[in-house]
Amino acid sequence: MEEFIRGPLVWIAFAVFFAGLLLQGWLFFRNTSPRQRRRLAVPEPKKKKPQKDKKTPLTPAALYAWLVNGSSACYQRHWPRLRRTVLFTHPFMTVVTVVFHTFLFAAPLLARAHNELLRRGLGAGLPSLADAAVDAMTLVVLLCGAIFLWRRLLVRRVRAITTFYDYLVLAITLAPFVTGFMAAHHWLDYHTVILVHIGCGELMLMAIPFTKLGHMIYFFLYRFLLPGEYSFGQGSRAW
């Protein structure tokens, strides 16, 4: 069992993870077709090509004007829409989620031990951060996770739609970080903890494509490719 978790299951987990993401991507492209979009009654808006301004010499005055006019135009153009996004309705949650997702990727990818294993296994790894930095990132991820848990448990509106599955997915996501931190600091029996850590990591990798953690890939597919009021760019595919 131990040998299986340390050996073949690692490769199986990575294979399931990457194959799963590819499968989900393929399913998305199969189920959406740009041809459908062309049938829409309202023709797609034609984008005007922005006129290129003549180059003006870069003087301090021109730079100042560019900064002032540019930022005020930018503000006027984007503020009315930006104001209604979650960045402004939930600034705290926006910061928490952005930090959470950033460190969720950064901590494991930049951990020294992980990259050491990669170098031994594949002969190449990513640059590593200092252990203290990765520790800090891990703690921040766990803190953000605790905030999510607190919301699930105590905020009325979140509780209204929370199911057991939400706790399960949160646990699957946080478990590798808890055990990883414990392993790095040799808390409890290192041998057992590292085994549990590897197992949790493998579980999370395999869960990503097939649970709601799939928003890892679908966030980008939905946001960039499906047309909608809030999509980035025009979106070219339809369901």
């Binding site: 919301r151 509106r157 939905y222």
Partner: peptide, 10 residues
């Protein structure tokens, strides 16, 4: 399956 039950749509 991708609704994160985050309630930020509220």
């Amino acid at each position: 399956s991708h609704c994160m039950h985050c309630t930020l749509c509220a």
